[in-house]
Design a protein around this nucleic acid. Sequence first.
DNA 1: TACAAATAGATGTATGTACATCTATTATTC
DNA 2: GAATAATAGATGTACATACATCTATTTGTA
Lengths: 127, 127
Amino acid sequence: MYTAYLVKSHISDGLKAYGLTAEQYNVLRILKGKHPEHMCVRDIASRTIERSSNIPRIIDRLEVKKLVKRSTSAVDKRETVIILTQAGINMLETTNNLLEKLHEEICGLDDEKLEQLNSLLDQFRKD
Amino acid sequence: MYTAYLVKSHISDGLKAYGLTAEQYNVLRILKGKHPEHMCVRDIASRTIERSSNIPRIIDRLEVKKLVKRSTSAVDKRETVIILTQAGINMLETTNNLLEKLHEEICGLDDEKLEQLNSLLDQFRKD
DNA sequence: TACAAATAGATGTATGTACATCTATTATTC
DNA sequence: GAATAATAGATGTACATACATCTATTTGTA
């Protein structure tokens, strides 16, 4: 948990220059995965680590920054669909490779050891 | 980070029955380590994972629940000293072994693999 | 078809983190 | 010894999570 905390802090620090939180950036990247299609809130939530009760409010903040656009689904009016704006796309291009760079900065393991770590964490979570 | 999230959630869920958050419980256990001596806020903060800007407010909540008592240090009036109340001690006795139990419930690794995991995480954080 | 149940997401509250700032006190320095 | 700097902790704000609840809409059922 200490390591997770350090990684998260490092990422948050790296994103500060762009006025984004780690959570906001994560949502942008999730949206990028589907772009130019839009996604509904539930789709986004299902791709985050956390239980995601907060996605609407993260979208609020991205919307204020004009990085995403929210509208009501035509198919199901209960659904809110979200799509990246051009500014959002530009932000992702500007910060391209940032996460990789941050990862390299903070991670002292080679690929083989990362595999081992990943495997151990998988086993940790087994039932 | 996903594993850390699951562990934290499991601990939080387990503590819910006692009306405590994981962070509050952590502070109680830190205080227990020094009891019956008291600790100042900085001492507590230095033993938590996080950067600890929030310790005074966590203590606020423990104080409302009468699990700790806060007073001004006689030696240095800037310092606030915190000590467990009898109710706090009772709470820790009641929840004795809880964390071990929660750990066993959620962790699928034996001691040897936990050692490996620990070692890999140490190496992850190297420089 | 009308009504009940389920679903999507928004929103309120309590709690926590990050960061800046404020007050009180202590330490330093001239 | 008085002025300044440093320190301890409290507090305000922005943002995040957890959970409960609310509204609008859709689905299911009698």
